[in-house]
Computed example of a mutant assay.
Amino acid sequence: MNWDDALKIYDDIVEACNGFERKGKKMIYTSSNGYMFTLLNKAGEIGIRLPKEEAAKFMETFNTGHYYSYGAKMKDYVLVPESLWENTPLMVEYFEQSFAFVNSLPSK
């Protein structure tokens, strides 16, 4: 999938969520409480930050792995398979779960 299509899908997911909006022009992300919690990297891949237990369950359930952005492994992030991107209700559920997770962390 090309980057523009990935950006459109990412924006559609964020727009369907409550309480936050997309940030960035070149580096696309969402953040709250001083933490980023979803990213769209330059390779057109979506990453979601989840608690360790939920991240492990997500990777096992959806047969995916850790998320990398600009060559670096992103701590607590999982790579979202493209097969899930158009399942908007599921993606909204995970984006909002990620939002709640970073809001449970100490403020930066």
Score class of each variant (00 low, 15 high):
residue 30 T to V: 14
residue 58 F to K: 02
residue 46 I to D: 00
residue 12 D to E: 15
residue 85 W to H: 12
residue 93 E to K: 12
residue 66 H to D: 01
residue 58 F to R: 03
residue 52 K to H: 12
residue 46 I to T: 04
residue 40 L to N: 02
residue 43 A to H: 13
residue 26 K to S: 15
residue 64 T to Y: 03
residue 14 V to M: 01
residue 43 A to M: 14
residue 19 G to F: 08
residue 39 L to T: 08
residue 86 E to V: 06
residue 71 G to F: 03
residue 67 Y to S: 03
residue 71 G to L: 00
residue 42 K to V: 13
residue 85 W to C: 05
residue 52 K to V: 13
residue 39 L to M: 15
residue 19 G to I: 10
residue 96 E to G: 10
residue 40 L to C: 05
residue 50 L to T: 00
residue 66 H to A: 00
residue 50 L to N: 04
residue 84 L to V: 06
residue 20 F to M: 03
residue 61 T to R: 13
residue 96 E to S: 08
residue 50 L to Y: 08
residue 52 K to R: 15
residue 66 H to M: 09
residue 91 M to N: 02
residue 57 K to P: 01
residue 77 Y to M: 06
residue 65 G to R: 07
residue 74 M to F: 07
residue 25 K to N: 15
residue 84 L to Q: 08
residue 18 N to P: 09
residue 35 Y to W: 06
residue 39 L to H: 06
residue 93 E to W: 05
residue 93 E to S: 13
residue 92 V to C: 01
residue 29 Y to M: 10
residue 79 L to Y: 09
residue 47 G to P: 01
residue 18 N to C: 13
residue 53 E to N: 14
residue 82 E to D: 14
residue 29 Y to F: 15
residue 53 E to M: 14
residue 54 E to Q: 12
residue 58 F to N: 00
residue 31 S to C: 11
residue 31 S to K: 13
